[in-house]
Design a protein around this nucleic acid. Structure first.
Lengths: 121, 121, 121, 121
DNA sequence: GTGGTCTAGACCACC
DNA sequence: GTGGTCTAGACCACG
């Protein structure tokens, strides 16, 4: 478990959990069939509520990142390389569409945005 | 009033109001000392509660976009051009810092991001 | 008329009028039986509503600073020197009582307050 | 909760709440990470509307006195001693600047003011 | 007419 | 349980 929770963030904790684990899977840091810690263990370790962990695990399963074997635990799905790329593309694309609209609202042009990207990368 | 409310959005209505008006001010579409519609008028026109409009107007005042004269109404502040640029820069910069972190999490490199920017602009 | 109106202040305009004129009377800058400008004239000059001026003049009369002669206008009352001192004392005393409470709330001691007084005087 | 609400005061309730709690924090009567009563509990105890309490809590958060964890409650921020002093100084200074002007308007000299301070402290 | 404040009551997401 | 948002309706001071 390599997770950082920010309790004071405006982002819900279960979503922080989901995003960090899913991106670890996408980037290949968590291998196929890796056995995730049990909900209770994770909750204890991260000092969050069991309900919160359960919600994150559920969302991970719903979106196909993990699968559950009753009585044994949760495991990382075998995601083919191509599919990973698809997901990555999709997530990034969706995010970028939202952001570009915001920058346009602020009156930035393409160059302004490019500069900002370089600066922060 | 050139405002579009999306009731289905997950973004609170008062925040939608704030963002649209503040960006109109930043972009100079609303001139200095322009008399905003009264909260009652705006509420009626936009078909939202008076309180919701008030919350947006309050936030606009708090952040220095407008000023209030009780009994007279709310007016666009005279923001010097330089200050507008500062605010714009600051907002965009803050947003970009957040986003770049996300793209990195997804494993995108600088080129990937640049391509996405171009695509959506 | 030596009055300064701040439209954006949180203090109501009629109260600004009242306070500035009453203190001018207390300090003797406006002599006894001085003929105040008519409500309409004052309103025009100060660019405020007639209603606002009327409210201020009424308050001045109610508190004994001026008297009205119907059809002739409003005049500064002949306030004996002793009475002026009384009013001054009373106003300042009331104000100070309020303020000291505030400073105590903030945890300032007598010395801190004295220093502040000297600094701002 | 050691709060006194004066319904007859001209000061809005939410502001009374804000001032009393913030000064308790500044004076160190409320420790860091102290869990404020929930807005519902406070509203019930103080016999005011939930919204009124919320408004006060919001202002406290905005000015950095407390932080909020949705679903958990509101907590007193860990304000370093130096920062507390800064805030205290700033508030007192602002107040004094305003008041001295008033006393001068009334024609009081430095000695008069000093006497008043001593009298009321 | 304007904004400022307060109320009671509701639904939601989150923990 | 918590806070976040929204509603309708009310009264006030101010201009």
């Amino acid at each position: 478990m390599n997770i950082v929770i920010e309790n004071t963030s405006d982002k819900p904790i279960y979503k922080q959990l989901f995003e960090q684990i899913s991106s670890q899977i996408i980037r290949g840091e968590l291998e196929s069939n890796y056995n995730l810690p049990s909900i209770r263990t994770a909750a204890k370790e991260l000092r969050v509520s069991i309900i919160t962990v359960k919600k994150a695990w559920e969302e991970l399963e719903r979106q196909g990142f993990i699968y559950t074997m009753v009585g044994k635990g949760c495991f990382v799905r075998d995601i083919s390389e191509s599919k990973v790329l698809d997901m990555r593309e999709e997530l990034a694309d969706k995010e970028m569409a939202k952001q570009i609209g915001y920058y346009k609202e602020l009156g930035l042009n393409l160059n302004d945005i490019m500069e900002l990207v370089k600066k922060h990368y």
